[in-house]
Design a protein around this nucleic acid. Sequence first.
DNA 1: CACTTTGTGGAGCAGTTGGTCCAATATGGG
DNA 2: CCCATATTGGACCAACTGCTCCACAAAGTG
Lengths: 200, 200
Amino acid sequence: MSPAGRPRAFDMEGVLEAAMLLFWEQGYEATSLAQLRAATGLSSASLYGAFDSKEGLFKRAVEHYMNGPGTATGVVEDETVSPREAVAALLHGSIDMQADPSHPVGCLIALSGTMRAPGEEHEGVRAAVAARREADRVRIRACVERGIAAGELDADADVDGVTAMIHSFLLGLSTQLRDGVAATTLHAAVDVVLLNWRRS
Amino acid sequence: MSPAGRPRAFDMEGVLEAAMLLFWEQGYEATSLAQLRAATGLSSASLYGAFDSKEGLFKRAVEHYMNGPGTATGVVEDETVSPREAVAALLHGSIDMQADPSHPVGCLIALSGTMRAPGEEHEGVRAAVAARREADRVRIRACVERGIAAGELDADADVDGVTAMIHSFLLGLSTQLRDGVAATTLHAAVDVVLLNWRRS
DNA sequence: CACTTTGTGGAGCAGTTGGTCCAATATGGG
DNA sequence: CCCATATTGGACCAACTGCTCCACAAAGTG
């Protein structure tokens, strides 16, 4: 049942999509309320009534991202394929998503919240995105462990090392793509990464 | 010989060092002139007289970085060691430098200038840092080619792929360190990367 | 119907932004 | 010594920042 009071007149999904695209392209700090107002067509009052603050809007936009482009990393949890294939799907799929010309290049999660403001002013923003990266780290690690259990990797392989190797590569993709490195080159790089996914 | 006119009273190196540390920690956009004035002890007039603009100061700070911490990547050009050892020195050395607690964590070049402002307002800032990344790409590629020439890698190895693999990993290190991943874990990840540096 | 609750547009807030101006000051060259 | 050149601190600027307030409109509830 709808709550009492005047119903909101704007399309929530459309507003989140527009805000997400702006934050994705420019980052949190560089995106101004004036730009967000122009892109969403909303007034300051509507924006603050619905999201409390610029930071609140950003967090909601990140959630929106995770339900869309951000799902690309989810395949690493797919246990119906071999762990090696799951990593291959994760990396190749991430490149395809990030290079898609229908939206900003790179990954919102990889590129946002890497700077520190001393007054921890936007600490919530940094923490929100860092938590998503940590979640990816955990999922990749689980996949590496499955790889060992499946006998694809040596039993004494360094789990943290292999995990960090894959995740560091994944995080670097966004910067490379923004620098203009071709997606085909990065796909080839994934093949090189996967050479390591074997018994030594 | 010194140019006519009143000589500057401040220590240029010290000012560049202070500005570099601020930009390194916070990025270009998030660092305000007020912070730069406080950290350097200079007035707006002195700052603009010496560097023209905030962007000019940033570019000089990047040069200063390249002459200090930024030299860590130079070892990849060292032809007195094997190409494989050069890459190992590049990656291990970059981690050591970036994790050094005497300055901000991560790499200024890897973390800055990854966002795009539509009005290409700070395009010069982005371009300046992107050019340094491109230079690293070129140097890594040369090292990969030396590896093939030396017989360390297969003659038909994908040069661009191997280069992108190494550079993507290198770029991801900064974000991992800012997320709190231990340097020891990343050193272990380098060992995994180097497993690829061999004939298949 | 009145009454409450919530969303809306627009005006406007204090604070900060990057950057400029100016009078004073300090040097080298003629 | 005098002038041209350059640096200095501090006051100052328009523009913009994230955000709030207000009068009003649109819904549910009695």
